[in-house]
Computed example of a mutant assay.
Amino acid sequence: MWADGLGGHLPAGSAPLTREFFDRPGPEVAPDLLGRVISHGPVSVRLTEVEAYGMPGEDPASHTYRGRTPRNAVMFGPPGHLYVYFTYGMHFCANLVCLPEGVGSGVLLRAGEVVAGAEVALARRTAGAGRTVTARDLARGPARLAVALGFTREHDGLDVCPPGPVGVLEGDPPKPGAIMSGPRTGVSSGQETPWRFWIAADPTVSPYRPHVPRRR
């Protein structure tokens, strides 16, 4: 069921981002992704919150910290590719790969506003659950964003430059003064690194939750 609406924020720029855009360090790419629009089929999401992850040996919170594995191989590929992984045995999350091939860095897509294909995104979010989902919550959080866009393991490694099934468009970036930064959400290592970026006062930004160790 559709519980409320926020009013569509249509992208101002429809030109796709180039590979050079992603061929930079994750902490530099991440704030520049805010306001950009990622599209997959009928669904498009304007990004309002992202998190950067660093290179092997540099960032203990990154999947690439201990080097290349079959799971994170896409992160070591060329920039501008989609890295999709399964977490907690329940959810897919999506990242955009940064820096040249062989390095291993990326940006997690944490939250956004659905600006096209809301009906499709809503159907995906409510499939088999029968629950109410608000417009604000359609892509509010990395797992919800991946579901809204229809990302699964088969999309791991897709090239978004130039756009094919998945593309990232120029969109409508916020003014620099509207970009906020702070510690990353829910990571057990490197949690104080201020590499989470979001658009100030945007209702689709997810709530900050520090890591809580699991009790045995």
Rank of each mutant, 00 (worst) to 15 (best):
Ala73Phe: 06
Ala73Thr: 06
Val74Gln: 06
Val74Glu: 07
Val74Thr: 15
Met75Gly: 09
Met75Leu: 15
Met75His: 12
Met75Ile: 14
Met75Pro: 06
Phe76Leu: 11
Phe76Met: 11
Phe76Pro: 02
Gly77Trp: 06
Gly77Val: 15
Gly77Glu: 14
Gly77Asn: 12
Pro78Cys: 08
Pro78His: 08
Pro78Ser: 13
Pro78Met: 09
Pro79Ala: 14
Pro79Leu: 12
Pro79Tyr: 13
Pro79His: 14
Pro79Gln: 14
Gly80Phe: 10
Gly80Val: 10
Leu82Met: 15
Leu82Gln: 09
Leu82Asp: 08
Tyr83Ala: 07
Tyr83Glu: 05
Tyr83Leu: 05
Val84Phe: 12
Tyr85Phe: 13
Phe86Ala: 06
Tyr88Trp: 11
Tyr88Arg: 13
Met90Ser: 09
Met90Glu: 01
His91Ile: 03
His91Leu: 02
Phe92Thr: 02
Phe92Val: 01
Cys93Asp: 00
Cys93Thr: 03
Ala94Pro: 02
Ala94Tyr: 02
Ala94Asp: 06
Leu96Trp: 12
Val97Trp: 06
Val97Asn: 04
Cys98Lys: 04
Leu99Pro: 00
Leu99Ile: 01
Leu99Thr: 09
Leu99Asn: 12
Pro100Trp: 04
Glu101Trp: 07
Glu101Asn: 08
Glu101Pro: 08
Glu101Tyr: 12
Gly102His: 09
Val103Tyr: 12
Val103Arg: 15
Val103Gly: 10
Val103His: 14
Gly104Cys: 10
Gly104His: 05
Ser105Val: 06
Ser105Trp: 05
Ser105Arg: 07
Leu108Met: 10
Arg110Val: 06
Ala111Cys: 02
Ala111Asn: 04
Gly112His: 09
Gly112Gln: 05
Glu113Arg: 08
Glu113Ala: 03
Glu113Trp: 06
Val114Pro: 07
Val114Met: 12
Val115Lys: 08
Ala116Cys: 06
Ala116Lys: 12
Gly117Ser: 12
Gly117Asp: 13
Gly117Thr: 11
Gly117Asn: 12
Glu119Val: 11
Glu119Met: 10
Glu119Arg: 13
Glu119Trp: 04
Val120Phe: 14
Val120Arg: 14
Val120Thr: 15
Ala121Asp: 05
Ala121Arg: 05
Leu122Trp: 13
Ala123Trp: 05
Ala123Lys: 13
Arg124Asn: 08
Thr126Asp: 12
Thr126Pro: 15
Thr126Gln: 11
Ala127Arg: 14
Ala127Gln: 13
Ala127Phe: 07
Gly128Thr: 05
Gly128Cys: 04
Arg131His: 07
Arg131Asp: 12
Arg131Lys: 14
Arg131Cys: 09
Thr132His: 12
Thr132Tyr: 10
Thr134Cys: 07
Thr134Trp: 04
Thr134Gly: 15
Thr134Ala: 13
Thr134Gln: 08
Ala135Gly: 11
Ala135Val: 08
Arg136Asn: 01
Asp137Tyr: 02
Asp137Leu: 02
Leu138Met: 05
Leu138Glu: 00
Leu138Arg: 00
Leu138Gly: 01
Arg140Thr: 01
Arg140Val: 01
Gly141Arg: 00
Pro142Val: 01
Ala143Leu: 01
Ala143Gly: 11
Ala143Tyr: 01
Arg144Thr: 00
Arg144Gln: 06
Leu145Asp: 00
Leu145Lys: 03
Ala146Leu: 01
Val147Phe: 03
Val147Asp: 13
Val147Tyr: 03
Val147Asn: 04
